[in-house]
Design a protein around this nucleic acid. Structure first.
Length: 497
RNA sequence: GGGCCCUUCGUCUAUCGGUUAGGACAUCAGAUUUUCAAUCUGGGAAGACGGGUUCGACUCCCGUAGGGCCUGCCA
């Protein structure tokens, strides 16, 4: 393994102008080191679904390798970071079931350590003080852009202004020649010409470290072996590589995963329906469905579409992540969600439906849970979300006497009322009250009436549900129970026309 | 402007030089049916474009076009 030369302790004067130690080509990660991955979101708002997928990839890879998965909160931007946003991340990870193996690391709490490293780099001549004002910087930026080159500070090779106490930032002193290789696990080898890389600010004028320094120091200190993150960081990886080399630190393996786009191919944003993890939860998606769908978005294993966490862990390798950005497809997400609703435990679903109903302002009734557990098996196959499941269950929770919609009421005429009356009488004597035998009885009744089920099915559904949204009739009768079912029919028939 | 990344059915993907280019979602048609749904059967649907390399290219190389990211004292 190639290692950078040891840091040279400076004498307080920027040594770069005198000739900094040469930069090495690259150092590769030790293949024998146990894998450590991390997700490093910044708490500046909601938790993006792309962040969730990156977290999932990190989690899957760590589990696959028998390694560890860590969480770091990147809160060095004091202006925008909020405690509430930290909680959103913690809740999001919890909901997704992606438990980090250690308590989260808060980046800002490590600012002193970052500052030390910045000073070390300064002392070693690998960084310098830049006294450019905001205006000067803006001007340089404009010129550099016009000339099609990276911005350069004129303080790179200058002593500090004599006797001045002007504010300054510390910039990393990158090499002007040669190339830097980022050997990305997903994108393959990517070569950057060093002259294209600007000298990034590592310490702000107020002494707060910047992201690019903090990530490198933290990833190194946390022993991260695989940096799996959004590919918006691919360019940063080159400059970060330079910092690793300047510090003589072993490089992690990089894997830059493409971003998630909206259905129209544009960057996923609010107008696409949802972009925050919390919103997906509120829309009635199941976390295991999200894991399956997200894993499948940008990664595949042959024809496998629906798979367990265990299978995903067994199969997942970052190297197989697709290089192109993927679009969020609501249809497929819903399809996957439907699958997990079908195989989910009915009591769990009942509780989720109760929560949904509660959010809609429904006052809970003591019978709710029991009725939901009875009716959910009947309707879950048709539910793409918990919200839809709640809609499909609604009829079972209605309290007598039901209010019939106009359409439902219109199905009750002299003929159907008479027929329902005879049906109620027949059902009152039924020995069995389960779906199969009820279906048999409905059929027998239809035969005895000399008509098809269609002649009174609509009316029966209307009086049982109020709005006609009930599922299979026999199943609905069974789920409702004899007393409730006959009561609902009775209510409707006794109502004046 | 500059640098970098990306490009297979509408969408997510399989293919790792030789396949009738496979699967899933969506869509269409039919079947079933007590509404809706579900279910079953079947169909249509793709290698951005142009050059190479090769006996042979979706696969490798170059170019073009289109999209994305970075170019912050944001992360």
């Amino acid at each position: 393994m190639i290692r950078a030369p040891p840091l040279r302790r400076g004498d307080g004067v920027d040594a770069g102008a005198l000739g900094a130690p040469p930069f090495v080509e690259t150092t590769m990660p030790d293949p024998d080191r146990p894998v450590v991955t991390r997700i490093a979101p910044s708490p500046t708002g909601s938790m993006h679904i792309g962040t969730a997928r990156t977290a999932l990839f990190n989690w899957l890879y760590a589990r696959h390798c028998g390694g560890r998965f860590l969480l770091r909160i990147e809160d060095t931007d004091r202006e925008r970071s909020t405690e509430a946003a930290v909680q959103v991340i913690l809740d999001g990870m919890d909901w997704l079931g992606l438990e980090p193996d250690e308590p989260p690391v808060f980046q800002f709490a490590r600012a002193e350590r970052h500052r030390q490293v910045a000073l070390e780099l300064l002392a070693a001549g690998r960084a310098y003080r830049c006294y450019m004002t905001v205006d000067e910087l803006a001007a340089e930026r404009e010129i550099a852009r016009a000339e099609g080159r990276a911005i350069r500070s004129r303080w790179r090779d200058r002593e500090r202004p004599v006797g001045s106490n002007l504010p300054y930032v510390i910039r990393f002193r990158g090499p002007l020649e040669g190339e830097t290789l980022v050997d990305d696990l997903i994108k393959g080898p990517v070569v950057f010409r060093n002259k294209e890389l600007d000298d990034l600010v590592i310490l702000r004028s107020d002494g707060v470290p910047t992201y690019n320094l903090a990530v490198v120091v933290d990833d190194h200190d946390m022993g991260i072996t695989h940096v799996i993150r959004g590919d918006d960081h691919l360019n940063n990886a080159a400059r970060q590589t330079l910092i690793y080399q300047a510090m003589g630190w072993e490089l992690p393996a990089f894997a830059h995963v493409p971003l998630i786009h909206g259905p129209d191919g544009a960057k996923l944003s609010k107008r696409h329906g949802a972009q925050a993890v919390g919103e997906f939860a509120e829309m009635g998606l199941l976390p295991e469905a999200m894991r399956n769908y997200l894993a499948r978005l940008g990664w595949g294993h042959g024809d496998a579409e629906l798979f367990s966490d265990e299978q995903a862990i067994a199969w997942f390798d970052v190297r197989d992540v697709v290089r192109a950005p993927a679009r969020l497809d609501w249809n497929k997400l819903h399809h996957v969600n439907n699958h997990y609703i079908r195989i989910a435990d009915d009591e769990r679903l009942a509780r989720l439906v109760q929560e949904t109903l509660g959010r809609r302002g429904r006052t809970p009734h003591p019978d709710d849970l029991a009725r939901l557990v009875a009716v959910i098996p009947l309707v879950k196959d048709g539910a793409k979300t918990i919200l839809e499941l709640a809609d499909l269950c609604a009829f079972a929770l209605a309290q007598r006497p039901l209010v019939l919609t106009e359409k439902s009421a219109s199905l009750l005429n002299e003929e159907t009322r008479a027929r329902l009356g005879r049906l109620a009488a027949a059902l009152a004597d039924a020995h069995e009250w389960d779906a199969p035998s009820l279906l048999g009885q409905l059929r027998d009744f239809a035969t005895s009436e000399g008509v098809g089920l269609g002649k009174f099915g609509g009316a029966l559904r209307a009086v049982l549900s109020g709005d006609g949204s009930a599922p299979d009739l026999a199943g609905a009768l069974a789920a409702l129970g004899r007393e409730e079912s006959l009561g609902r029919i009775e209510d409707a028939l006794s109502r004046s026309q």
